[in-house]
Design a protein around this nucleic acid. Structure first.
Lengths: 261, 261
DNA sequence: TTGACTCACTGGTTCAAGCCAGTGACCAAC
DNA sequence: GTTGGTCACTGGCTTGAACCAGTGAGTCAA
């Protein structure tokens, strides 16, 4: 590897040194969670550097998720939030009536947070190709598109966009109502003859797009978990797929499952 | 929300404008994957800005994973790599003999990559508390620690650190050899009376630490998937747990599983 | 032909200075 | 007491200049 990236090169650069010093100070508890770091001007003076250099150092910390800057107030040590854990049980029948808001609400409540789910849109559309593939339908088969935003304590944590063939959901609350009733959306699917029996979860992580940063109010330095969930009925036919984008700093996935031969 | 982060504030800043323009150009194909962007000095001239401003804009692109800079050469549009997908089948018995290198090797080969697994260390240690909890052992029970690095085409993609009670692995290759034989590590566990029957996967994502960036050679703007895997035998006793850190831009997880009541 | 060298060009980093805009403590006027 | 303004302080961003170090094409002498 002859080419090097910025950070490699900066290994002994002043900004990197300052960042490393601050990381040490944070790790050693000199600055605890929520504490304010010295101002950029003070740090510049202390390290015999220009303020722009300190700004770069702090930007690195922020990008790592270790600190958060607030305009006009200062730079603060970030407190690691509790995780919301989601997994296979999210879809189990016994979870359905656990809480008005479903598994998300239950998990939020367990964390002492106020859950809120906002169904922002319900549309009837021609599906994007990746949706059609997951639903195993031809690309011109219409689907319902339900856009849900999940909040805890008024902070947006997740975006979930659910797709299902229109023919399955026509006339049911899934196609025309934000309220899925006490049994939830999977109760509705079950009534239509599609009991959720298998699920497939395709997971990756990435940095949010600028649009996602804005809409999910994701702080700098926090990635998102990008999850495609697909539900299958007892005959292994897919009947719904949901694309979740979750703030990674608040979210964990937790699956337990049998191993087959 | 009265406080705003850096990016919100910079919404109409010049650097953000330049970044947005470059994003558009990339999206529209003006610059394709692998193409070199104009030099910072040229871009500065074009946008009537100073080079520092252009540098900030490009840094944003790099942090998003859209571009990669090479010192002395220029800034290039990043090509999105193929993903390696891992999931439940990674542990199934039928996968064990698929390839000398196991599921990782099989997946790499499927992507046309040259797989290589390096067992960097085998130690006998007192486990960290999170390991002891997952193995359901007392914190003073010794365990084996196996550190594995996974490469594809000489690029490090994953780090996996496996822990298992020393009492289980004593005298077996798991405790003293990099080579697990044709049946792999789970074949060894099975011989000791621990057939892998259930798994638990705890998944989250985060930005890599500077150390991880260095050792996995992770480009800026790429998060890691942080995965704790635990294997259980037919009596639901945990016998091994592995902590994976995976480059998120190359890795996806793909699970299919039954839903239970 | 080949290898050493030059040189223009690249990004990486820092400097020194300045203006802008949000914050919050403080204080005077109501 | 409450209100509204001042002001010192915060980070956000830009300017313009400079030096460093890696790259690679082109040159020139052995």
């Amino acid at each position: 590897m002859t080419t090097q990236n910025r950070k490699d090169h900066a290994e002994y650069a002043q900004a990197t040194e300052i960042a490393a010093q601050l990381r040490r100070d944070i790790a050693e508890g000199k600055y605890g969670p929520g504490d304010r770091l010295p101002s950029q001007r003070k740090l510049a003076e202390q390290h015999n550097a220009v303020r722009g250099t300190v700004d770069r150092a702090i930007r690195d910390l922020v990008d790592e998720g270790l600190a958060i800057t607030e305009w006009g107030r200062g730079t603060f040590v970030r407190q690691k939030p509790q995780w919301m854990r989601f997994g296979r049980r999210r879809y189990s029948r016994s979870m359905r009536t656990f809480n008005d808001l479903g598994p998300f609400g239950a998990e939020a409540a367990a964390q002492g947070k106020e859950p809120f789910v906002d169904c922002a849109a319900i549309d009837r559309i021609i599906p994007p190709s990746d949706v059609a593939e997951r639903l195993e339908i031809s690309p011109d088969t219409e689907v319902v598109r339900r856009e849900n935003w999940y909040y805890a304590d008024a902070e947006a944590l997740q975006l979930g966009v659910t797709f299902a063939p229109w023919s399955i959901v026509e006339g049911t609350p899934v196609s025309n109502s934000a309220d899925m009733g006490p049994e939830g959306i999977y109760g509705q699917f079950e009534r239509q003859g599609y009991p959720i029996t298998f699920i497939r979860e395709e997971i990756t992580a990435r940095m949010p797009s600028p649009d996602e940063s804005l809409r999910l109010q994701i702080p700098p330095g926090v990635p998102v978990i990008d999850l495609w969930h697909t539900g299958y009925d007892d005959q292994h036919r897919p009947f719904e797929t949901t694309h979740f984008v979750m703030r990674a700093d608040y979210s964990a996935l937790d699956y337990d499952m049998p191993v087959e031969d």
